[in-house]
């Protein structure tokens, strides 16, 4: 949690500092609290294992997709390799639990630190490139990480994944081996991650990112260290992606090379596209939509590629926007006067 504050301080040196709404942060905390309470209540009223499983999985994907949107939507950095951090997080956490038998919170802290270090190294190289070349080099690094996971059999188990399950010892009375506790843990992780990311996005650091996205030269001219800001954004996004990986690893009690394959990065991109990149909650909506779509379609037909492909085409060619983009448009149209902040956020 200390990270965002550090960013804020750094970005505070920059001339373009919009005021941070303390009220809006409080509002966000209240919304998050209510949402968590509602979801827990839902589980109590309706203890369906299907819903529990679905929510845990969506939580992992939503954290991942939102972190990707920090890069894509806010910083204009289209990473094709974001899945490497999701996979790295899952493996790092799984390995720490299997080999060192530490308490889960410590393992998560270690995962965050290790991912930040990885993102620092990878980012330092990738950030130098822009536009489509940035996309390509992130893809190349992801494939390198993937190749490493598959090739380093003694450590990772290679293509078989981490075998033998991930131990889930109780901590502070929380036993993640039970579905209910894991469910609550996942939604709390989701809520906390979203809150922190929201705070970062709305901080002066977040607005610096938007400025770099819209006009890098101008930002640079105004004295912003573009390289550093982009690097920090890359690291923050990477760290949150790894948290998504941790939740997924806890859910499937394992880690697999597929977590860091290009398909994972691709799914992240579809989630933010379907949910909408101009709103903060878009990626979460996208995670729900894509997961639902996937589950429903694979249940109903063997030809889910065909079905999913057609749905994606409708999205890309017919709607051309994510669902929350429509909601945001509608919101703006219905209340022009108070839509100022939203409009500033919307991306052309």
């Amino acid at each position: 949690m200390s990270k965002p504050t550090a960013h804020t301080n750094r970005a505070a040196d920059t001339p373009s500092r919009p005021p941070i709404g303390r009220a809006s942060l409080q509002r966000d905390i209240i919304i998050a609290g209510v949402a968590v309470a509602a979801l827990i209540l839902l589980r109590v009223i309706w203890p369906s294992p299907a819903i529990t499983d679905f929510t845990i999985r969506v939580a992992a994907y939503a954290i991942f997709a939102t972190s990707l949107n920090l890069l894509v939507g806010y910083a204009g950095m289209v990473s094709f390799g974001h899945g490497m951090f999701f996979g790295f997080g899952a493996y790092c956490f799984g390995l720490v639990m299997q080999r060192l038998a530490l308490p889960i919170p410590i393992a998560i802290l270690i995962t965050i630190t290790a991912t930040a270090a990885l993102a620092l190294v990878v980012g330092a190289i990738c950030i130098r490139l822009k536009d489509i070349y940035f996309s390509f080099i992130t893809l190349a690094f992801q494939m390198l990480i993937y190749s490493l996971i598959v090739a380093w059999v003694p450590l990772t188990g290679g293509d078989q994944g981490l075998q033998g399950g991930i131990p889930r010892p109780s901590f502070l009375g929380i036993n993640l081996a039970t579905p209910l506790h894991l469910y609550i843990f996942a939604i709390v992780m989701l809520a906390l991650s979203l809150l922190v990311m929201r705070h970062i996005a709305e901080s002066s650091f977040g607005y610096t990112l938007r400025m770099i996205r819209d006009n890098m030269e101008r930002a640079s001219f105004l004295g912003i260290n573009v390289y550093l800001v982009r690097l920090i954004a890359f690291m923050v996004a990477g760290v949150f992606a790894s948290l998504g990986g941790v939740v997924m690893a806890l859910f499937v009690s394992g880690a697999y090379p597929e977590f860091s394959n290009w398909t994972m990065s691709g799914e992240g991109i579809f989630m933010i596209m379907m949910g909408g990149i101009s709103t903060f909650i878009g990626p979460t909506a996208g995670a729900i939509i894509l997961s639902l779509l996937n589950d429903v379609v694979t249940r109903r037909t063997e030809h889910h590629g065909l079905a999913l492909g057609i749905v994606i085409l409708v999205f890309a060619l017919g709607l051309k926007k994510g669902v929350t983009d429509f909601a945001a448009d509608w919101w703006r149209a219905s209340g022009d006067s108070k839509g100022g902040k939203q409009a500033a956020e919307a991306r052309p």
Partner: peptide, 21 residues
């Protein structure tokens, strides 16, 4: 019968769904 597309996390999900749902 359910398709996991050869992805382990989908295999896990689909198996849970087959049993639970």
């Amino acid at each position: 019968v359910r398709d996991s597309k050869g992805q382990p996390q989908e295999a896990a999900r689909v198996s849970r769904e087959l049993i639970n749902t």
